[in-house]
């Protein structure tokens, strides 16, 4: 299955957060619960897909020298749309995410995809790319928030009241605090580096056998 292999490759071996180290700030800041990570992930996917589509649609009209400011204005417009919509329809989540919702505009993943992919490819493939990269970020954030939720709070809260509480009798509250985020992400980065190193070693070994 080539699509599955591509997906595995995109999520594990070139994960935007754990391997490419992009979009770290929101990954640490909003991952105190699955609900926050899920909400933030939806916003990132929305902005990423729409900015990718818009930029690839108008790429032939943008003068090369001013392309970055144009991209930033397009992204900022969609971030404003997301902010106003969240404030109106999901005010609780809006308060929880706070500043970080507005700061999607400086998330390097979005500008990075605009520059590296959407400015060179067709509208439809930019659309697919936006969804893929957005899901990659969301999965990474969900992984971090799952670990932090279970260990730091003893609960898995998916949305509102839906979820499991009281998994651990005495949760390690520190994992849910800001510095616990650094520890969780640090250990996950090491785990991804370990997987990557082992894959590299395996392919090197194969090469040796062939000789």
């Amino acid at each position: 299955m080539p699509i599955l292999a591509d997906l595995k490759n995109a999520i594990i071996y070139s994960n935007p957060v754990f391997v490419l180290l992009l979009g770290l700030c929101p990954t640490l800041a909003v991952t105190t619960s699955l609900e926050n990570a899920l909400g933030m992930g939806m916003c990132v996917i929305f902005v990423l897909v729409l900015s990718n589509v818009t930029i690839s649609a108008i790429k032939n009209f943008i003068p090369h020298q001013v392309r970055i400011p144009v991209y930033i204005v397009i992204i900022a417009t969609y971030v404003t749309v997301v902010n106003l919509a969240m404030e109106a329809y999901l005010p609780d989540l809006y308060d929880q995410l706070g500043l970080y919702l507005e700061l999607i505009v400086v998330n390097c993943i979005i500008l990075g995809r605009a520059e590296a992919f959407a400015s060179r490819n067709s509208v439809s493939s930019s659309f697919v790319d936006g969804i893929g990269v957005g899901i990659g970020w969301t999965l990474a954030a969900l992984l971090v928030s799952f670990i932090r939720g279970v260990m730091g709070n003893g609960s898995i809260i998916i949305w509102g009241d839906i979820g499991i509480r009281g998994i651990l009798e005495t949760p390690a509250t520190a994992i849910g605090l800001p510095y616990g985020g650094f520890l969780t992400v640090g250990v996950l980065l090491a785990a991804f580096a370990y997987i990557g190193n082992r894959k590299k070693q395996k392919s090197e070994c194969k090469g040796v056998e062939r000789w």
Binding site: F182, L183, G186, V187, L189, A190, A193, Y194, N197
Partner: peptide
């Protein structure tokens, strides 16, 4: 080996 550079900086 796996903790080199960035992961150990996070810790």
């Amino acid at each position: 080996e796996a903790f080199k550079d960035i992961p150990v900086a996070f810790v």
